[in-house]
């Protein structure tokens, strides 16, 4: 084989390789240009973080449930018996009990908040990073609209029982529901951007609540609470309890809201395709 033939063969091989590379590049471009942008909002790390958040919330709620329920029961009795301002022995005892329950609640919160905060921070950071890179930088507003509109069937997201058990509070329910949706859901489901956004915003809001509660706890030394045994119940106590309740149990069951999001059926009006932008 002379040098000229060898050169020709090599040139031919190079051209063939170039064509092959070009074709595969074209195929990739076709895929991204033709279909919707491929997004990966829920890598394993995010799913694990959701699972951890759900577990941390459940642990906190288990500890909190008894103490808050006891506190609520005593407050209800206190208000029903019109103890406000009374120096009656029974009323004084009730106030003492309420403060003790309140102190227990603060202690549990103090103990649990750091873990809960770390888990929520982790979830919101991970989710925020994914949203920023996958939706913020890779997509245009039109891409998001197309992705959301592409939900043709109800199979995009799995259904989860909306009836929580009696002891399952809002926070843990919220995260376990998210975890289930993400774990069992279609990874390219059209509603996933909405789900990711909800998880992100809920995590941030929960963190805000934790900040509020922590600030309240910080401003009330437990000693002071006990010293005030004979005084009236303060607004601060009521505020803190209501914030704790909102964080843990919420104001209403938002389960159906989550499941309804983005499940409406979409019909494509083929006959007007010439008058509709993609």
């Amino acid at each position: 084989m002379n040098t000229q033939t060898l050169t020709q063969i090599l040139r031919g091989a190079a051209v063939a390789a170039l064509v092959a590379v070009q074709s595969s590049a074209w195929a990739i471009q076709q895929k991204t240009a033709d279909g919707r942008p491929q997004i990966n909002l829920f890598p394993t790390s995010v799913v694990e973080s959701l699972s951890e958040a759900s577990q941390a919330a459940r642990d906190m709620e288990t500890d909190m449930y008894q103490v808050v329920a006891e506190l609520e029961k005593q407050k209800e009795v206190y208000e029903r018996t019109q103890c406000n301002g009374s120096t009656d022995k029974g009323c004084t005892q009730l106030r003492k009990n309420i403060r003790r329950a309140y102190k227990d609640m603060l202690d549990v919160m103090k103990e649990r908040i750091p873990t809960m905060r770390a888990t929520l921070n982790n979830t919101s950071d991970m989710m925020g990073t994914r949203i920023r890179s996958e939706l913020g930088r890779k997509m245009t507003p039109g891409d998001i609209q197309r992705t959301l509109a592409g939900r043709a069937t109800k199979s995009g997201l799995p259904t989860v029982s909306t009836r929580p058990s009696a002891r399952q509070g809002k926070l843990s329910k919220m995260f376990s529901r998210y975890y289930e949706l993400v774990r069992r859901g279609d990874k390219q489901g059209q509603s996933l951007p909405v789900l990711a956004s909800q998880i992100y915003i809920d995590s941030m809001e929960s963190l805000d609540y934790l900040d509020l509660i922590e600030a309240e706890i910080g401003s009330q030394s437990t000693e002071l609470v006990l010293e005030l045994e004979w005084g009236e119940l303060t607004d601060q106590l009521t505020t803190t309890v209501s914030e704790v309740k909102t964080l843990l149990w919420g104001e209403g069951d938002s389960g159906t809201e989550i499941l309804d999001v983005g499940l409406a059926e979409e019909t494509v009006e083929e006959s007007y395709s010439d008058l509709l932008l993609d």
């Binding site: 959301l148 509603s191 990711a196 956004s197 983005g262 409406a264 979409e266």
Partner: peptide, 23 residues
């Protein structure tokens, strides 16, 4: 209703994306 649903969902996603981008 679908248009309203798009409107709500998109604003929900846009809020989260805008927040994530500013952080």
């Amino acid at each position: 209703r679908r248009a309203q649903s798009h409107y709500e969902n998109m604003q929900h996603v846009f809020d989260a994306v805008a927040l994530a981008c500013t952080r």
